[in-house]
Amino acid sequence: MLEEPPLLKVKRPAQRPTQAQIDAFQNTPTGFVADAMDGLGAMDAQIQALGAGFGLPYAAAGPALTAYNGPADVLAALAALKFIQPGDILVSSVNGFQGCATVGDRITGMAKNCGAIGFVTDGPMRDFEGVAKVGLPSWCTGLNPNSPFTKGPGTVGFGVNIGGRQVETGDMIVADRDGVVVVPFAQIDAVIARLEQVKTLEYALDKEVEEGLKVPQNILDLLESDQTTYHD
């Protein structure tokens, strides 16, 4: 017979990006960050900015603080409020459960009061108008008015798997209207270094398109090479 687990397990933070590292991701599109990670890093496309088409804020970049609640529970997310540092993004896993909301306007309001700049979950949210009033950028799978419980067990600060990505407290979260990208803590400096190259290439291509580019030259070269065959 299994022993009953404690209602909460809290892991003290062991890593956090420097302010310079955090600043390097501000106002950077998620697509650029994913490109700097070889085209990877994004959570499942079901996790989208809440209300991005209705005037709600939909961009945030900051360190993750993780909470694992389990299906239909919110105890760990509530406990995580105590450990939020200014600039954190609260990443709250419910194991992908869609049967009720993960949080609503009160918890997002408290998270913002604690200094959080964003909220990410793999379940639905509720209280749309209240969340809009709070103004905390949030990413979720949709809306569901059903209520969660506060029974536990849950964890704060431990790794969580959310949207197909493993997220550890201290990883960088970069989120916007396109979705949510996770930059593992150990890769932050390497990604920052590659971001400058990505930005240079992206802005140069943007300029070419604005000036009338129709087909990239490398594609034209391929079409004229022996690597393309034509058939009638």
Score class of each variant (00 low, 15 high):
Ala132Gly: 10
Thr200Glu: 14
Ala186Glu: 14
Phe83Ser: 06
Ala186Trp: 12
Asp73Ala: 12
Leu8Tyr: 07
Gln21Val: 09
Leu56Trp: 10
Thr141Lys: 09
Ala59Trp: 05
Gly154Leu: 06
Pro153Trp: 06
Leu7Cys: 04
Thr121Arg: 08
Gly53Met: 10
Pro153Met: 05
Gly31Ile: 00
Ala59Gln: 13
Ile162Met: 14
Thr28Val: 15
Ala60Asn: 10
Gly39Ala: 11
Pro6Asp: 11
Val103Pro: 12
Pro29Ala: 04
Ile192Glu: 01
Lys9His: 08
Val74His: 03
Pro17Leu: 02
Asp105Met: 05
Met125Ser: 09
Gly41Ala: 01
Pro71Lys: 15
Met37Arg: 08
Cys140Phe: 00
Val180Met: 05
Asn27Tyr: 06
Leu195Arg: 01
Pro29Ser: 04
Gln98Phe: 10
Arg194Ser: 09
Phe185Thr: 03
Gly157Pro: 02
Ala101Tyr: 03
Lys133Phe: 06
Ala193Arg: 07
Gly41Thr: 14
Arg165Ser: 01
Ala42Gln: 13
Asp38Gln: 12
Glu4Trp: 11
Gly164Pro: 10
Val94Asn: 06
Thr18Met: 06
Gly179His: 05
Asp221Trp: 03
Ala61Asn: 10
Val167Ile: 15
Gln166Lys: 09
Val91Met: 00
Gly115Val: 08
Gly159Arg: 08
Leu143Asp: 02
Gly123Leu: 03
Ser147Lys: 13
Ala72Glu: 13
Ala101Gln: 08
Ala59Gly: 06
Gly118Asn: 09
Val182Asn: 07
Val180His: 04
Pro216Cys: 09
Leu40Gly: 00
Ala67Tyr: 01
Gly152Glu: 09
Lys9Ile: 09
Ala67Phe: 02
Leu65Ser: 07
Leu90Gln: 11
Gly152Arg: 12
Gly142His: 10
Glu210Arg: 14
Glu211Thr: 15
Thr18Trp: 01
Gly51Tyr: 06
Gly152Asp: 13
Asn144Phe: 07
Leu56Lys: 13
Met172Trp: 01
Thr66Pro: 00
Gly39Thr: 11
Val156Ser: 05
Ala132Arg: 14
Leu90Lys: 02
Phe158Gly: 02
Pro57His: 00
Phe32Leu: 15
Ser92Trp: 03
Thr30Ala: 12
Gly157Trp: 02
Gln46Trp: 03
Gly109Ser: 01
Ala61His: 05
Val156Ile: 01
Thr169Glu: 03
Asp221His: 11
Gly130Ala: 03
Ile47Glu: 02
Gly157Lys: 07
Thr141Ile: 04
Val94Thr: 15
Val156Leu: 07
Gln19Leu: 15
Ile89Cys: 02
Asp221Ala: 15
Ala14Met: 07
Thr121Tyr: 07
